[in-house]
Design a protein around this nucleic acid. Structure first.
Lengths: 155, 155
DNA sequence: CGGGAATAGTTAGCCGGGGTAACGAGTTCA
DNA sequence: TGAACTCGTTACCCCGGCTAACTATTCCCG
């Protein structure tokens, strides 16, 4: 049942200075898959779609390009995500008042409803597990979060 | 150029208690995309393939099922990832000595070389940005890392 | 000891969501 | 005013998840 003998071992729980990047990278990848697996059954919107709704909710109307940059995605990808959201009635496209090239995206009433309904029940899995942590551990995550955000936005 | 007026604002940099899960979730998603964009040009292996090589390097030979569980992926997905690695000569499948149903996967010489060559230059982007952080910030990440790992492995 | 249940892996096929290339409409500026 | 640039879209490709269904092997119980 168990694997055969191991050739090389590395510290799994106590990464050294030079291992921090490696461990952090793989951890982010796996944690993302873990979070994806916990999608709410009564919310058929994908993670990327929800991210767009949240961005609009937090920042108000945005152009397609601004949304793409914010989510670190190429414009064509954002266009397709928006197509789905428009079709679902969650967002609306409208012409930019000053610049005819740009397109402003805004939440519809329904989209705002999805965000607000989602706010309560979302992240249930993660929130539950966060509750299982000690206060110190939660504090450690809270301290690391802005740094991770800066990394995500870097360059 | 800037977005139109915003409807609702939320604390971006100082998440409250109840916002931790939400912020952490989106941050993980975006950071992952950021990291994916920084793939090394002279390494054509995908992130999932590299994760497999690293797992084998760290833990020695593993079965397909063990690899799938470790990467939080379904067996068919791991089978396909392994197909690519076998074709590229990075890993080998061989029969399990005791249980004819299982298949052991091991690194080839070439695969081990990829891991070792990669170890030095990998995560250059992330490592560079980690170097730009203060010692306190790195410590915060290091403290958060095992908690994130536990979350990634939870349930 | 024989046969059904359980387990490991694979095959086949679907689909979300990234990417690049190319293009048209609109804007800017020399 | 015409050339160069910008923004968004279209068309298309591909990676890498997933489920369902199947085979081979092992386990266990009657």
């Amino acid at each position: 049942m168990s694997p055969v003998d191991a050739a090389a071992r590395a510290p799994r729980r106590a990464p050294l200075r030079e291992g921090l990047a490696t461990e952090l990278r793989f951890t982010v990848m796996r944690l993302r898959r873990r979070l994806l697996a916990e999608r709410h059954p009564d919310n058929d919107l994908s993670a990327s779609s929800m991210a767009v709704l949240w961005a609009l909710h937090r920042e108000g109307d945005l152009t397609v390009g601004a949304l793409a940059a914010r989510e670190r995605v190429r414009p064509p990808s954002m266009t397709r995500t928006l197509d789905g959201l428009v079709e679902g009635g969650h967002v609306e496209r409208r012409a930019h008042p000053d610049d005819g090239r740009q397109v402003l995206v805004s939440l519809t009433e329904a989209g705002r409803g999805v965000v607000q309904a989602d706010a309560g029940r979302r992240d249930r899995w993660l929130a539950r597990h966060l509750d299982d942590l000690t206060a110190d551990e939660r504090a450690a995550l809270r301290a690391a979060l802005p740094i991770l955000q800066r990394l995500a936005d870097a360059d």
